[in-house]
Each structure stands twice: as C-alpha cells, then as structure tokens.
Simulated scan of single mutants.
Amino acid sequence: MARITLAITGSIAAYKTVDLVSSLKKQGHSVTVLMTQAATAFIQPLTLQVLSQNTVHLDVMQEPFPDQVNHIQIGKETDLFIVVPATANTIAKLAHGFADNMVTSTALALPDNIPKLLAPAMNTKMFTHPATQSNLKTLESYGYEIISPKESLLACGDFGSGALADLEIIIERIKETLNEQTL
C-alpha cells in the first residue's frame, strides 16, 4: 500500500485527523504524521503516534538520524503528501515558500512527482479573503489539488464555507490520487 505523509496544522478541525489516520491505517497504508506547533494545541501527538504506529514529527531542527536530514528523507519516502486541515497561515507559507516548521520544510523539499493534496479549514471570511484565494491559486499552479471546504456552521458560530470537507470526501480523493499514480 501507499506511504502517506499527513501534515496537520492548527485548526479546531485537527481532531478529525484521528479518524483519518485510523481509516488510512485500516486500509493498509503507512502514515507519517507531521504537525505544526499550533496543531499540538488541538490534538496530542501521542494519539496520532499510537494510531499511525510511526513517530510524529514536530520540529524541523530535530534530527533523529545523524546520516540523513529528516524533512528531506520524509519527502523521499512518501507516495502522497496531504495537509489536513490546512489553515490560512500554512496555506500562505506554502504559497510563498516559507520553510519555518516541519510541515512547510517537508512540503518545500518534496520531489516534483509526489502528489500534493490540501484540505482547507478556517473561518469563512478567512477562506474567501482575496489573499487566501490567491494563495490557493498559487498552490494549484505548484501542483497542489485543493479539497474544497464545505459550507456549514463553523466552530466560531459563523455559517459559511470553510468547514473541513467530510472525511469520506478526503479519503476518496486520496484513493483517486493514488490510483492515478499507479496507472
């Protein structure tokens, strides 16, 4: 099965990645989890480590193996890179080539042939803001496929587009992307 690198950023929707990791593992995939510091405020790395049966990577400066650069090696050992949930902050960093955390450094170091998916989750105003929309278009031009958020009541109490897509949709997009890679 596939080696999937799941990048989790600091959104309340991060809790949904527990079910995502569990589902991907049940399908036989290997899942490597990367987290931003903000993501750890919403979900504990240990939870994801137990479910993925892999080390959760938090710090780009932590190099567990002296003979390799961790964020480079992770990119070399993945068949699919996905950011769930993708915050406006991380989207902006990815669009502009920032490499200041484990998620952005690994993304920037990915080989060109690795498929990249991104599932935004944020407040409606943040999602529809011209800067975010421009950053998403930039990422599409870099080869990212965007899994559109759904319209829903958001955690902040607003209603609109910005809620993380349903996990079934995310999982289906992962399957489709992996199938395309094997053709």
Rank of each mutant, 00 (worst) to 15 (best):
A2Y: 01
L6C: 04
L6W: 02
A7Q: 11
A7P: 14
T9L: 12
G10H: 08
S11C: 09
A14N: 05
K16V: 05
L34A: 04
P45N: 08
L46H: 11
L48G: 03
Q53K: 15
N54M: 11
T55S: 03
V56D: 00
H57C: 07
E63A: 03
P66V: 13
D67G: 11
V69N: 03
V69D: 01
H71Q: 10
Q73Y: 08
I74G: 02
P85Y: 07
A86I: 01
N89R: 08
H96F: 11
F98L: 15
D100K: 08
V103L: 06
T104D: 06
L110I: 03
P111S: 05
N113A: 02
N113C: 01
I114Q: 07
I114P: 06
L118M: 14
A121D: 04
T124E: 12
T124N: 14
M126E: 03
T128E: 14
T132G: 09
T132N: 11
E140Q: 15
G143Y: 09
I147E: 05
S148C: 00
E151W: 02
S152H: 12
G160M: 10
L164D: 06
A165F: 06
A165P: 07
E168T: 14
I170D: 02
E172G: 12
R173S: 13
N179P: 00
E180K: 15
Q181G: 05
